[in-house]
Write a protein that binds this DNA or RNA. Sequence first.
DNA 1: TCTTCATTTAACTTTTTTATTAATTAATGA
DNA 2: TCATTAATTAATAAAAAAGTTAAATGAAGA
Lengths: 116, 116
Amino acid sequence: MNTQTNLPEVFGALADPTRFAIVERLLKEGDLPVGQLAEPFKMSAPAISRHIKLLENAGLIERRIEKQWRVCALKKDRFADLHQWIERYRTFWNTSFDRLEALLDKQQGEDDDSSR
Amino acid sequence: MNTQTNLPEVFGALADPTRFAIVERLLKEGDLPVGQLAEPFKMSAPAISRHIKLLENAGLIERRIEKQWRVCALKKDRFADLHQWIERYRTFWNTSFDRLEALLDKQQGEDDDSSR
DNA sequence: TCTTCATTTAACTTTTTTATTAATTAATGA
DNA sequence: TCATTAATTAATAAAAAAGTTAAATGAAGA
């Protein structure tokens, strides 16, 4: 993971429902201009503009200029960082799962014993 | 994913550096009582207590009573939810990667052509 | 050049979050 | 029972986040 990546900042960017919805929409529909991203919300344009800027500062999206529009696109690096982070926790929950499996196996073994 | 899971709320819980550090510590060191989790911070005990409550409300940890201590433990479900969420984004960045690979392969092929 | 469209910046208000100290609860063990 | 330890709740102050309207920027095209 990029050492500059400030995970709490990235989580903060995703903590707002409006910003989360914007990110989800970019995943589902691909790159979109600011105006189109703003449409589903009754919020003012400046409010949306700030949300998008915050997402950009967190490294989750980037903006490019195309004719008179600013087109937003997801940036893969931060998502890869998030993935790498959560993968570390997988060990933790897989262990729990393995323990459950072991327990079930053990019970199965005991059931077999009792049927002899 | 559990439909009740409010991802922005979970991200909000992880957006604070203190809470993030607490979660990371629980992963590295396992279950710990509130008092021990509080030690590395110069913050007051009530402040830490609130942070831990917020993590609990977001479903990231749970507290159990053991003698006079409240022991905190990670709860795997929310982490699994996070993992499932980020996995959806993997498609997006793998696609980019595949395109890069395709481009490199293509260039390789063109290089071979030019050497003929 | 002038107008229009898309978006941002400024100035400001409201709401939410986070921290503090003081007081309270609850369990332990002399 | 009483003192001690562990942690939480209450009341409140300070800081950060998010929204609004009005004004500014900047490219497009008549």
